[in-house]
Design a binder for these strands. Structure first.
Lengths: 155, 155
DNA sequence: CAATTTAGTCAGCAAGACTGACTAACTGGA
DNA sequence: TCCAGTTAGTCAGTCTTGCTGACTAAATTG
C-alpha cells in the first residue's frame, strides 16, 4: 500500500529548494543566536541590494523585483530595529537615501559569514572539489537563467 | 557613486534561489495557460507528497514539514477546485484519505511535464553534459543536506 | 509655467504559514 | 471492559510578506 506515483522522481525544483531551505533556516537561526533575532529572511532583500553609500527606496524595490510599498515595509522594520537610517537625498527633495547603520553593517557581515560557513560545512560533506564544481555550474546556470525563458524575472 | 560592498559576491543562497524562482514562475505560469489557473506554487506541497492510493492529511503535513492546519488549508482549496476528494478511511474513523481526482491527476502530470520542459530548455542553453553534471551534484547535495547541519529540517 | 512623471505614503486585501484550544475516535493497560 | 492517553482533524485567531489602488509632493520637460 501507499503506492508512489511511478514517474515522480526528484524534480529540478525540489533539488534546488531543499538545500535552499536548509541554508535559510541554518543561516537565519544562527543569526538570531548571534543576537540579530529581529532579522527575518525577507529582510535580506534589503541587505542584498543596498549600496555602501546608501540607496533610494525605489531603487531597492526595483532591484529586489518587488513593489515599493513592500520594500518600504521591510525598510521600515529594519529602520525601527536600528539597522538602517534614512537621510534626505540632496539631489532630489522627494527622495530619501536608505543607509546601513553600524549595526546594520555588522548584521550584513554576519549574514555573509554565516552563509559562507554553511557552504563550508556542505563542502566538508560533499568534498571540496565537488562543491567547487557545483558552485561553478550554479554560476553558469544563473547566467543562463538571467536571460530568462519567460520574461517574468526579478531579484 | 553607488559603491557596492566589496566582499558581497554571489552567495550560495542566491545561486540556488535565482533558478528556483525562475523555474517556479515559468512552470506555474505555463500551468495557468494550460487551464490550471487555480493552482498556486504552495499547492505543490500536496501534489509532491500525495500517494496514488490516497494519503491522510496528517501524513501529508508531516511529509511537507508543515502543520496539519496549514496543509488542511491547501487541501481544502484544491478540493473545492475539484483536484482532490476526501474519502473516509476504513481503518480509522477519525481519518479521511485525500485522493486525486482525474483532474488532479492531469494537473500533476502537467506539472511534471512543465518542470521537465523547463529543465530541457536550460539544458539547451547550458549544454546537456553540464546540465547532467549539475543534476548529479544537486542530487548528491540533497543527500548530504538531508542529514542536515542544524536539526531544523522539513519538506 | 502647465503637464507629466517620479518618490514615497496610506489604506486595505490575500496567500500561506503559525499557535492554541477543542472534539471525536482509536488504543493499550488495569 | 472501561478509562487514560494518544491521534486525526477542525475552529478561531495571528503574523509575515507580498499585492493593488489612490493619493501628495516634488521634479522635469516641452
Amino acid at each position: 500500500m501507499a503506492k508512489t506515483f511511478p514517474d515522480r522522481q526528484r524534480t529540478l525544483g525540489s533539488l534546488l529548494r531543499l538545500p535552499y531551505q536548509a541554508l535559510q533556516s541554518a543561516v537565519y537561526g544562527a543569526l538570531a543566536e548571534r543576537g540579530f533575532d529581529d532579522i527575518r529572511a525577507a529582510h535580506s532583500a534589503v541587505f542584498r541590494h543596498i549600496d555602501a553609500d546608501g540607496t533610494r527606496l525605489t531603487v531597492l524595490a526595483e532591484r529586489a523585483g518587488m513593489t515599493k510599498q513592500s520594500m518600504a515595509y521591510l525598510v521600515d522594520a529594519l529602520a525601527q530595529a536600528g539597522y538602517l537610517t534614512a537621510a534626505a537625498d540632496p539631489q532630489d527633495g522627494r527622495a530619501r537615501r536608505v543607509l546601513l547603520t553600524r549595526r546594520g553593517d555588522q548584521a550584513m557581515t554576519a549574514l555573509l559569514e554565516l552563509s559562507a560557513d554553511f557552504e563550508h560545512r556542505l563542502a566538508e560533506r560533499l568534498g571540496t572539489a565537488r562543491m567547487a564544481r557545483l558552485r561553478t555550474l550554479l554560476e553558469a546556470l544563473a547566467d543562463v537563467v538571467e536571460i530568462a525563458p519567460d520574461g517574468a524575472n526579478a531579484t
